[in-house]
């Protein structure tokens, strides 16, 4: 029985190797991942959007992401949007440095004192954003927070930690909606979870399933009834297969 992964926040650092602010993004991201919010965050490697193929893009679609950029070029935010989906939040180190009156950041390999302060401030900002994102419902499709209702937490995974995107994948399932192939992220574990909860195939169950699917996928408003119909069929099939086996 697969677990539905706990909702987490993906951190995408630009890592810009040619400037000290890039070093700040790396160290700030690490601080969040390892110290400040280890159980709520996942690192997403920016280059894996291209080098790692669809699976890695799916990671960033699956999790709300925070882009941490070193400069106004905003490589992490723009590339995440280009190859995956709009980041739920975005921070830029140069902005934080300016806003908080931190001195000039320097030192690619060994940050100066201002750089270390920038790491602390950036990490704290990101950690706050993580908390915000986990408390709110984020719509990737609309690129904004929905109403401020708390997000229903998925079946909790007992314990998890910051980790790298290399070499793994969130289960996906391809279905036909209106004659078009659509890949739905996290559908397999959702089907399994519903079945384990003893939910019988029904229109009500399909509606519940749709609500869960929408957390991880963009479902156009106009297409919701078609999606719900497809999900009803998929769930009935899934349950029937279990019986046959």
């Amino acid at each position: 029985m697969p677990n539905l992964p706990q909702k987490k926040v993906g951190i995408v650092a630009c890592s810009g190797e040619e400037m000290a602010e890039g070093t700040v993004t790396r160290l700030a991201a690490l601080k969040v991942l390892e110290e400040l919010r280890p159980n709520e965050t996942v690192t997403i490697c920016l280059p894996l959007f291209l080098a790692g193929g669809e699976g890695d893009r799916a990671f960033a679609r699956f999790y709300p992401t925070i882009a941490v950029d070193g400069c106004a070029l905003r490589c992490a935010a723009r590339a995440t949007e280009q190859y995956s989906g709009k980041p739920a939040a975005s921070v830029v180190v140069t902005d934080i440095v300016a806003e908080r009156g931190i001195g000039p950041v320097a030192g690619l390999r060994r940050l100066n004192e201002a750089g270390q302060q920038a790491v602390a401030e950036t990490a704290a900002t990101v950690a706050d954003l993580v908390d915000t994102l986990l408390d709110k419902k984020w719509s990737r499709r609309e690129g904004r927070f929905l109403e401020s209702e708390p997000v229903m937490q998925e079946e909790a995974v007992a314990k998890s930690a910051a980790s790298c995107a290399c070499g793994s994948g969130i289960p996906v399932q391809t279905v036909q909606v209106n004659g078009q192939q659509v890949t739905l992220i996290a559908l397999p574990p959702l089907l399994a979870q519903f079945k384990q909860m003893g939910k019988r195939p029904s229109p009500e169950t399909a509606a519940e399933l749709l609500a869960q699917v929408k957390i991880y996928n963009d479902v156009p408003d106009a297409m919701e009834s078609q999606y719900q119909e497809v999900l009803a069929q998929e769930y009935a099939l899934f349950c029937a297969e279990g019986v046959a086996a």
Partner: peptide, 10 residues
């Protein structure tokens, strides 16, 4: 048999 935990599938 496949098991997914966090972002890893085994």
């Amino acid at each position: 048999l496949e098991y997914t935990l966090d972002k890893f599938t085994f």
